[in-house]
């Protein structure tokens, strides 16, 4: 069942069309990554979905929204979350909880619960002005889910964090996945790959690719053989590539990647050739193109 359906969404800033017609649906219980380079339109899309921005045309229909106000169904974490610095973390969560319609008692309980879940319970009585970037990010996630929304939208939740913070936030999202639908934007493929089931690929305001992780991989991934020789990697690789129908060859410093249709056949042939000529092989690896490559391919199209 779709939580939200987006149809023909468009947005223009002055003379530049930033979103050029988006259509997609988000299915309940899925974690979806909105992927794209800087300036692809990720933040604008999320802002429209959160109601902070109004689309020029197109519709956003939330399942179960009353009179077009869908704010009680969503939780949103902006890219650069700002809080009231004079409040403590606990006060802020209780405040947002009450604004979202929880009773005093519920808000208190839920705030405490979330402070522990996101791991800032120790700092709950400290002013937010004194929080570190990572703590603010986690407080931001906590406020986004305080009213148990159907859809949680996180705008670049890990981009500004150090490796530890990023690890923790990704683990937190892993936990959230079990409770709600998540839509989060990122330009880092690994993060998307790690926690997401589905990917929406945004480029220049258009959806250029969408689907589950495995669909995308099947569609775009190619088998390849990576070769590293002690010397003359490029010469040897080119000599080898003549032996077998290689779709393309990419030489990257000391490493050569040969893209092939049939890995097994190529493997046998290459290895025989290498041993018979006694070439100084250092590394022979069979792999598939990563999502990084898919990303590059889609963006360059």
């Amino acid at each position: 069942m779709p939580v939200v359906s987006i149809n023909g969404l468009k947005k223009r800033f002055q003379d530049q069309e930033v979103i050029k017609g988006l259509d997609f649906q988000l299915t309940e219980g899925k974690c979806v990554a909105l992927l794209g380079a800087n300036g692809a339109g990720k933040t604008t899309t999320l802002k429209m979905l959160s109601g902070l921005m109004k689309p020029d045309s197109g519709t956003i229909v939330f399942e179960g929204a009353e009179k077009g106000d869908f704010r009680s169904l969503i939780g949103y974490l902006p890219q650069y979350p700002v809080f009231y610095d004079w409040m403590t973390g606990r006060e802020f969560l209780e405040y947002t909880g009450k604004l979202a319609g929880l009773s005093n008692k519920e808000a208190k309980g839920r705030a405490q619960e979330l402070l522990e879940l996101v791991g800032i319970a120790d700092a709950k009585n400290r002013r937010i002005g004194k929080y570190s970037g990572g703590m603010k990010q986690r407080l931001g996630i906590a406020q986004a889910i305080i009213h148990r929304p159907k859809l949680v939208m996180l705008d670049e939740p890990v981009s500004a964090l150090d490796p530890f913070g990023r690890r923790e936030v990704l683990e937190l999202m892993e936990k959230l996945k079990k409770e709600t639908t998540i839509l989060f934007s990122t330009h880092i493929l690994n993060d998307a790959e790690e926690v997401c089931d589905e990917i929406l690929f945004l480029h220049n305001g258009k959806l250029v690719e969408a689907g589950t992780m495995s669909q995308l991989k099947d569609k775009h991934q190619q088998a390849k053989i990576d070769l590293v020789f002690k010397e003359n990697t490029s010469r040897y690789s080119e000599e080898l590539s003549v032996l077998y129908p290689v779709t393309s060859i990419k030489i990257n410093g000391e490493k050569a990647s040969l893209f092939v249709e049939d890995v097994e056949g190529a493997k046998k042939l290459f290895l025989t050739e290498i041993t018979s000529r006694n070439l100084p092989l250092i590394k022979f690896e069979i792999s598939r193109t990563s999502l990084e490559d898919v990303f590059m391919k889609v963006v360059q199209k």
């Binding site: 902006p78 700002v82 947002t96």
Partner: peptide
């Protein structure tokens, strides 16, 4: 301007 309104007004206020 600071952006805190973006968090508050996304709640059903």
């Amino acid at each position: 301007k600071s952006g805190v309104a973006g968090i508050i007004l996304v709640k059903p206020v």
